[in-house]
Computed example of a mutant assay.
Amino acid sequence: MAIAKTSLREVDPVWQRICDEGRDTINDEALMGSVVHAGILNHSSFENALGYRIAMKLASTEMSEQTLRDIATNAYEAEPELALAARADIVAIVDRDPACHRFLQPLLFFKGFQAVQAYRLAYWLWGQGKKDLAYFIQMRTSEVFGVDIHPAARIGKGIMIDHAHSIVIGETAVVGDNVSMLHSVTLGGTGKEDDDRHPKIGDGVLIGAGAHVLGNIEIGHCSRIAAGSVVLQPVPPMKTVAGVPAKIVGEAGCSQPSLTMDQLLNGCGGAS
């Protein structure tokens, strides 16, 4: 007997959870009804809701919400991986952020999540050769969210940017999967050369608040960068670095620093 294939939209636990939470929110706080209906319940899919949210945030007198929604719709239809990455980002935030208790929170309220999804849209546009549109998205994302990610940067899935203020990620930067970073992080270059000049961040890395990683250097997987550090040299996998300039101060202390979010140098089995 033939088995019919089921699409992601027919069985989408993240979207179903968000819708259920939206209805619960209205029951608990009726004044949130218009926000929840506009942002969640009026939409038939996660992709539609996400496109609406990005468009609403980035719209301006220069480019309308409808135009931005059309761009997002085209992107999600052409590249389903964009929305899959967004789902992974939501799950990551719920798992790692103690202030996040519901799946709808990142979609409706968290500018770190929204900024990353706007970047993903700009990245898709950049890959399609629509560079001026991508620059426009980058500009508006920086203006609205305080997060400046070049559209050519490559960022993996399961990303959490907590608080998401004054984030800068340069053109040739690469960020792996399951990376967590806090506010005021810079992944920057060290000069004006037009070449591969930005950091390469491995999977599972935790980058503390105010840390600056500069130059075409590799940060090994599952390492920790302490808050306020300035990293100018490569970091081996599963190490903790701290200071200005940053030096190795111990082991990472656990297999997944970005998941535990432990930033104490003597925590999680780090430096002794």
Rank of each mutant, 00 (worst) to 15 (best):
A209I: 06
A209T: 08
A209L: 06
G210P: 03
G210C: 03
G210N: 05
A211W: 13
A211F: 12
A211P: 09
A211V: 10
A211I: 10
A211Y: 11
A211M: 11
A211L: 07
H212F: 05
H212M: 14
H212D: 12
H212E: 13
V213G: 07
V213M: 10
V213K: 08
V213A: 08
L214I: 12
L214F: 07
L214D: 09
G215K: 03
G215L: 02
G215E: 10
G215V: 03
G215R: 02
N216H: 12
N216Y: 05
N216E: 05
N216I: 05
N216A: 15
N216R: 15
N216W: 04
N216C: 14
I217S: 03
I217R: 02
I217D: 05
I217A: 05
I217F: 11
I217G: 01
E218Y: 15
E218T: 15
E218A: 12
I219T: 03
I219W: 15
I219H: 15
I219A: 11
I219N: 14
I219E: 15
I219Y: 15
G220I: 02
G220L: 02
G220K: 04
G220C: 06
H221A: 13
H221T: 12
H221G: 00
H221M: 04
H221Q: 13
H221I: 01
H221K: 12
C222D: 11
C222Q: 05
C222S: 13
C222A: 11
S223Q: 04
R224S: 02
R224E: 02
I225M: 10
I225W: 03
I225V: 09
A226N: 03
A226M: 02
A226Q: 01
A226D: 04
A226T: 01
A226E: 08
A226Y: 02
A227V: 04
A227F: 03
A227T: 07
A227P: 06
G228E: 01
G228H: 01
G228N: 03
G228C: 01
G228F: 04
G228K: 01
S229G: 09
S229V: 09
S229K: 00
V230A: 08
V230N: 12
V230G: 03
V231S: 13
V231A: 14
V231C: 12
V231G: 10
V231F: 12
V231N: 13
V231K: 15
L232D: 10
L232C: 10
L232G: 09
L232V: 13
L232E: 06
L232M: 11
L232Q: 09
Q233K: 15
Q233W: 08
Q233I: 00
Q233H: 14
Q233L: 15
P234W: 01
P234G: 01
P234C: 00
V235E: 09
V235L: 09
V235Y: 08
V235H: 07
V235N: 07
P236R: 04
P236I: 08
P236W: 05
P236K: 03
P236H: 02
P236S: 08
P237W: 06
P237Q: 11
M238T: 12
M238F: 12
M238Y: 14
M238D: 14
K239G: 00
K239V: 01
K239Y: 00
K239A: 00
K239I: 00
T240N: 02
T240M: 14
T240Y: 11
T240D: 05
V241M: 02
V241P: 11
V241T: 09
V241Y: 07
A242L: 13
A242P: 08
A242G: 08
